[in-house]
C-alpha cells in the first residue's frame, strides 16, 4: 500500500464521509431523486433543470425563462427587489417584536432597544430604511411595468393585483410609522388620519375606526400594531402569491418591446 501524505489522507477521508452522508437513508429522504444534493452537480442542461425542479424555493421560477427577461436592464430586478425587501422586513420585524410592547411602554422599549440591545440600533435602522426603500422600489417597479406596457393583455389583472399590492405596501408602512410612539410618529399618523377623514359621507367613521377613537392614543397604537405585524403582512403575502402565480401563468415576463 502506497503511503499517503497527511493531506491526501485527509482529502480521501473527507471525500468518503461526504459520499456516505450523501448516500445515507436520511439524506436521500431529504432530497428528491435527481436533486444535485443527492448526486453532486456537474454542469449539464439536465442538471440545470434539476436545480430548479428539486428545490421548493427556486421553484418559484420556471425551469426556463425568456432570454431577454434575464437581462437586468429589462426588469431592473425591481419586482424581485420588492419581494426581497419584504422578506428582509419580515425577518427584522420579527426580531424587533421581541423587544417591543405596543403600550405606554412602546417609546421606552425603542429607547432600550437602541441603547442596550446588541445590534438593536442596526436592526431598527434596517427595518426603517428598508421600509422606505420598499415603498420606493415598489413604486419604481410599477413605473417600469407601465413604461413597458406590461399591463396589457393578458396581464391586465396582474396590474390590478399590483395596485392592491402598492396600497398594501403603503398601509404597512403607514401603520408601522406610529409604533415608535414619538412625536414624529404620532403627528405624521394624525395628519394621515385627518386626510382620511376628508372622505365624504363616512370620513369621520373611517378615522374613528382607524384610530380606535377620536385621536391617536395607545388604543390606536395597539390597533396599528396588530394591523402592522399580522393583518397586512398576511394579506400582502396572499396577494403576492397571486401576483407571482399570474406572472408565470400570463406567459412569463412581458416583452421584448
Amino acid at each position: 500500500m502506497a503511503k499517503l501524505t497527511l493531506r491526501e489522507r485527509f482529502k480521501k477521508g473527507a471525500e468518503g464521509s461526504g459520499d456516505s452522508l450523501r448516500g445515507s437513508k436520511f439524506a436521500t429522504s431529504i432530497f428528491r431523486p435527481g436533486s444535485p444534493f443527492r448526486k453532486g452537480y456537474s454542469d449539464s442542461p439536465r442538471n440545470r433543470s434539476y436545480v430548479v425542479m428539486n428545490n421548493v424555493l427556486y421553484h418559484l421560477h420556471p425551469v426556463k425563462v425568456k432570454r431577454h427577461g434575464v437581462r437586468l436592464s429589462y426588469t431592473l430586478c425591481l419586482g424581485g427587489m420588492s419581494f426581497f425587501l419584504f422578506i428582509v422586513l419580515t425577518i427584522t420585524g420579527i426580531w424587533l417584536m421581541f423587544y417591543f410592547r405596543p403600550t405606554e411602554m412602546a417609546y421606552a422599549d425603542i429607547q432600550a432597544l437602541q441603547t442596550s440591545v446588541a445590534f438593536g440600533s442596526l436592526v431598527r435602522n434596517m427595518h426603517r430604511w428598508g421600509a422606505h426603500l420598499m415603498v420606493l422600489v415598489v413604486f419604481l417597479h410599477m413605473s417600469r411595468v407601465f413604461y413597458h406596457g406590461a399591463y396589457k393583455a393578458p396581464r391586465e389583472f396582474n396590474w390590478v393585483i399590483g395596485v392592491i399590492l402598492l396600497f398594501l405596501t403603503l398601509f404597512l408602512s403607514f401603520t408601522g410609522y406610529l409604533l415608535p410612539w414619538d412625536q414624529l410618529a404620532i403627528w405624521a399618523v394624525t395628519v394621515g388620519g385627518n386626510m382620511a377623514s376628508y372622505t365624504p359621507v363616512f370620513g369621520a367613521q373611517i378615522k374613528f375606526g382607524l384610530f380606535a377613537g377620536l385621536e391617536a392614543t395607545t388604543a390606536t397604537l395597539l390597533r396599528f400594531y396588530v394591523l402592522h405585524v399580522l393583518f397586512f403582512p398576511f394579506i400582502i403575502v396572499i396577494f403576492m402569491a397571486i401576483h407571482f402565480w399570474r406572472v408565470r401563468k400570463d406567459g412569463g415576463i412581458s416583452g421584448p418591446l
Partner: peptide
Amino acid sequence: DKVNTWPHLMLPEFISL
C-alpha cells in the same frame, strides 16, 4: 428564445439581492 433559469436568471438575481 429561452435560457435556463439556473444559472442565467438566478445568478444575477442573487447578485442583486
